Simulated scan of single mutants.
Amino acid sequence: MAQFHNVSGFLPFKGNDYNFGYPAGVSLMDLVPDNVRPMIHEHWSKFPPVNPMWHYLLAGIYMILGFLSFFGNGIVMYLFLTKKSLRSPANMFVVNLSFSDFMMMASQFPMFVMNCLGGGYWTLGPFACQLHAFTGSVFGLCSLLTLVAIGYDRYCVIVKAFDGGHMTSGKAFFLILLCWAYAIVVSIWPFFGWNAYIPEGILTSCSFDYITQDWNKKSFGLFLFIFCYCIPVSIIIFVYVQIVNAIRAHEKALRAQAKKMNVENLRSNADANKQSAEVRIAKVAVANVFLWLLTWTPYAYVVMKGLYGNQDDLTPLVSALPGLIAKTASVYNPIMFAISHPKFRLALQEAWPWFCVHEPKDDDSKSSKTESEATK
């Protein structure tokens, strides 16, 4: 157990309300051994220790998220590798998302859990801290960018279907490589002196330095905010708004034509199935935008708050929770983009009949290419 030190010179917290069994006046940094202290920014010495139950609670949550992520993303990757019917350009993005999410949790939650249960601070040394932060950044950014690519693919299929905008395997592979290259290039800069990787929040995980108030750190934070949040979210909102508008315009045109012909609707049985797919895609589009904002906005807020706002509001828990929220994406992404879709559900039903998936087969061979791709 580390000895308690008063390293801050000032202790804004008073009384026994937040001691949780620690001596009065102890700061978060006082719990950290001397050999770990150089890694940690003095900002965290302003705050008292968090309730030790947070470490156990977060460790438990991360273990649950890790299991669910491995299970869901593992299923998606297995089905893609074993079922030829799923090997389409659109599904290349889905399986890349699953691989990235899988690796993100594999590289993050074991270290986090070890630190939570091993003392409540970073116990694995500077190199492991940099590795933890770098891999989390690469896989997290790749997942984020793959979501943008999935939105762009849906845009090509639905909005640009008659303008030669269909995605090919070669184009999909190029965009996937671009996602990985972008994520690696952004994440590698701290190794060359632009920003740095340090422990954050409750000190059981590592990330970019969004605390230090110099232009080196602040310029990198601004770069991240613009190129890894503002631009991706703008693209996502644009493509899904266009998708929803295209579907609404199509439905409006069909209703107007049916009214002129004095019939109830103009759809055949195959088109009726297509209508259902279109409505589903519109709902998924809205959900995608909402979940993307819910996942990444808290982390963007913390980074900008730390670099350009009032750092007194940036408590250990406020800094730690956005990372947890971002990692929940690795659990719901396979459900949103794969397991909930008919083609994957059919493959899942064939692979594991005991899985209680009941997806009716589409026997209509006249379904258009646009329909089949849009439902993947």
Rank of each mutant, 00 (worst) to 15 (best):
L117V: 00
V7Y: 04
A256Q: 12
I61H: 08
Y18W: 08
F238V: 04
P360S: 15
K217N: 14
L254P: 01
S368P: 03
F99T: 00
N195Y: 11
G66P: 00
Q311A: 14
F290N: 04
V32D: 04
D362Y: 09
I281T: 15
L314M: 12
G165W: 09
S319D: 15
F337M: 07
S268I: 07
Q213M: 12
G193T: 14
D17S: 14
P23C: 04
L65D: 13
F99D: 02
E350A: 09
I325K: 00
F192M: 13
N262V: 13
P23F: 00
F139H: 10
I211L: 13
G15M: 05
F127C: 11
I184H: 03
H43R: 03
L97V: 09
V50A: 08
L291V: 10
I211K: 00
E359N: 04
G74R: 03
G118H: 07
N35G: 00
I237C: 15
F13D: 08
V303M: 15
N216Q: 04
H132A: 01
D312W: 12
I202D: 02
F223S: 10
K218H: 10
N51E: 05
D163V: 06
V159C: 11
G170E: 01
E278L: 15
K361H: 15
A329L: 14
Y301F: 15
W54Q: 07
K252L: 10
Q242L: 08
Q275A: 11
W180N: 04
N19Q: 08
V26Y: 06
A351K: 05
S367R: 11
I158T: 14
R154H: 10
A106Q: 10
Y56Q: 08
S45P: 02
V26N: 03
S330V: 09
Y22G: 01
A106H: 06
Y155I: 01
K259L: 13
A351W: 05
L222W: 14
N310Y: 09
D313C: 06
A287I: 11
G151H: 14
N16D: 11
P48S: 07
R248C: 04
W122V: 07
V357R: 14
A272D: 13
L11E: 07
Q213G: 10
M261H: 06
C129D: 09
W194I: 09
A2I: 00
S88T: 14
G120A: 10
L348F: 11
